[in-house]
Design a protein around this nucleic acid. Structure first.
Lengths: 338, 338
DNA sequence: ACATCAAGGGAAAACGTTTCCCGGCGGGCT
DNA sequence: AGCCCGCCGGGAAACGTTTTCCCTTGATGT
């Protein structure tokens, strides 16, 4: 039975017998219960210190029905966005004495539900980060892992706090910025087809078209990698647009480099925008105009929403939309009039 | 007693009564114990499925004395190196059914020991990532969290597997590379004074001086940020060296940009090396010659060392030194002979 | 047919806590 | 002086498993 006691850990019973009280009393003083006589309490504390006693978290969890741990499941830990969220979440949770357990689904959809359920069983709550699963699957899963916070996804099945970045609005504002500079012909270098955030950008751009019906906006096939951006430079150069919206910063940097090799100057010949405001976006030449999503705030807020649910057993929690903040830098300028 | 049973979770007892057996038997079949009659086992499995029964991990942990979880404590989760290690570790551990719990000390030294101990109590082992604490403190702490793996640090107090990146050797090889190209006057743009990895580089460069006594190598004060690199460009330009070793890629990129603004061409006028091989090092103009540390391998190996200790209660585990791999790219070239 | 044996499953202990329940005791009030 | 109330602390139950021990049952061999 029970795990090998290699060095026989010191338990509450040891402290109890040393202090000459019952283990119930020890538990009481360890938890700051004031109903115990001061002199006894002091004796217990002395014994605990002497024996270096620290309550076993597992036993505690079993008795208390809580683990002081929350889980986060991300599609891919190598994605800087998720790293930033994880970091914000972890720090915020730590401030309240909670730890975070990570689960990386490695982008395999079928694993997500399993990982999430698994995590939920060991933790007091789960934050699901940009899950790739279908709406139906999510809707079925959500109720089963109740203290739940969703990031970049929503569900109606059960009232669940959601934190979603408004990619559509971000790219819409970037496009508007180009128009204000005087550009009339724009192009959007798309992200991966299956990417949910790409379709959100496309939706935002459709709204943009409604707002500016006289602006020409075309879509060019792109990608989310540096190389995809680089290889698009010919198409971009030939498309006739003077303002280019790129799916994200990485691809924009690739494009920037490709244009540079072809002797096309930015922003003199072409204006360029990225998305994400990754750390190096401000250091490209020229610095990249882009949209910053406040991701570490996002991790922080995710924790607060989680905490609200854990404490007051259900909190009225609407979904929060985060409009990206536009960073105007050197890669955009008025078009040259010829 | 026991936490609020909001929706009364289904336990082993429910399955037992449904299948008409004792909970001991249920436990046996759930754990693949073959001593149970096939027809009964099937009945139990059916009941478990029907009730969607999954063993409670906390109860399991208590009985088994293991949590199937390991902890990792890092000084700062926003550091890409630690992110990569975390990722490698997490994926490798997951393959063996283990989860990882993270603890970020936010670079405050006094927290490290506490976090590590705390983590060890909830987990089956701990990996300590580049701890900032003193040698003495580490030596005292190490034995108390036994299944332990150290990264970028060693200790003698107790046989503990260590994984250390050989920064000294890396920069030594970069320097040798510059010499082979024909450079005779080199400079090292240092990192932060207190950085342990900076002193390792300095130590490596002292070895380099012994190997190449006729080469002129000077040290210039630098930093680990883009801006620090950028602001060093005047000093670098004035120092007379033709080959510049920079503390890391980020600072090297800053320097590159600063030199560019001053009209100093790389590699024609000056050769430049970075360190770390961060993702964008290959995309600067020119691409950066740098030293790549195989950090995700490192996370992977950390898990293997951990697993060895967990399984066979102590494994003979020497410390592994990782020589960085030199990436030769466009930022280094023979000096122009005048 | 009886004794020995193997195997399978139930009862209970163990893991380490927290908390409920109750008994004892002291003090205050009548 | 007696009664009641309230406080303090011990015993025991509960959390949800795993595992040891032992008993029962059925089978096999002589």
């Amino acid at each position: 039975m029970a795990g090998r006691a290699t060095t026989r850990r010191v338990g509450i019973a040891d402290v109890a017998s040393m202090a000459g009280v019952s283990h119930a009393t020890v538990s009481r003083v360890m938890n700051g219960n004031t109903t115990v006589d001061a002199v006894i309490a002091e004796r217990v504390r002395a014994a605990a210190k002497e024996l270096k006693y620290k309550p076993n978290p597992v036993g505690r969890s079993l008795a208390l029905g809580k683990t002081d741990t929350i889980g986060i499941v991300v599609p891919d830990l190598s994605n800087p966005t998720f790293q930033a969220i994880l970091r914000g979440l972890s720090i915020a949770a730590a401030r309240d004495g909670y730890r975070v357990l990570i689960a990386d689904s490695s982008e395999v959809r079928s694993e997500e539900a399993i990982l999430a359920s698994e995590a939920r069983r060991r933790c007091d709550g789960v934050v699901l980060c940009a899950p790739r699963m279908s709406d139906a699957e999510l809707e079925e899963l959500a109720p089963t892992l109740h203290p739940l916070v969703l990031i970049n996804r929503t569900t109606d099945s059960v009232p669940t706090p959601s934190l979603v970045v408004d990619y559509g609005k971000g790219i819409q504002e970037l496009a508007a910025h180009l128009v204000e500079l005087g550009h009339r012909k724009l192009a959007y270098l798309t992200g991966p087809d299956r990417s949910a955030s790409n379709v959100q950008r496309l939706r935002g751009l459709e709204n943009f078209k409604l707002d500016y019906p006289d602006i020409d906006l075309q879509y060019l096939p792109g990608g989310n990698t540096y190389d995809a951006g680089f290889e698009s430079s010919d198409v971009v150069a030939a498309c006739g647009a003077t303002g280019i919206l790129v799916f994200n910063d990485v691809a924009a940097m690739g494009l920037l480099s490709g244009l540079n090799e072809r002797g096309i100057r930015v922003p003199e010949d072409l204006s360029l925008t990225g998305f994400d405001d990754m750390p190096f976006a401000r250091y490209t030449m020229p610095p990249l105009t882009t949209a910053a999503v406040p991701i570490s705030d996002l991790g922080d807020l995710a924790w607060r929403r989680m905490r609200d649910q854990i404490q007051s057993n259900d909190a009225a929690t609407p979904t929060n939309y985060f409009p990206p903040r536009i960073e105007l830098r050197g890669s955009t300028a008025p078009p040259v009039t010829r």
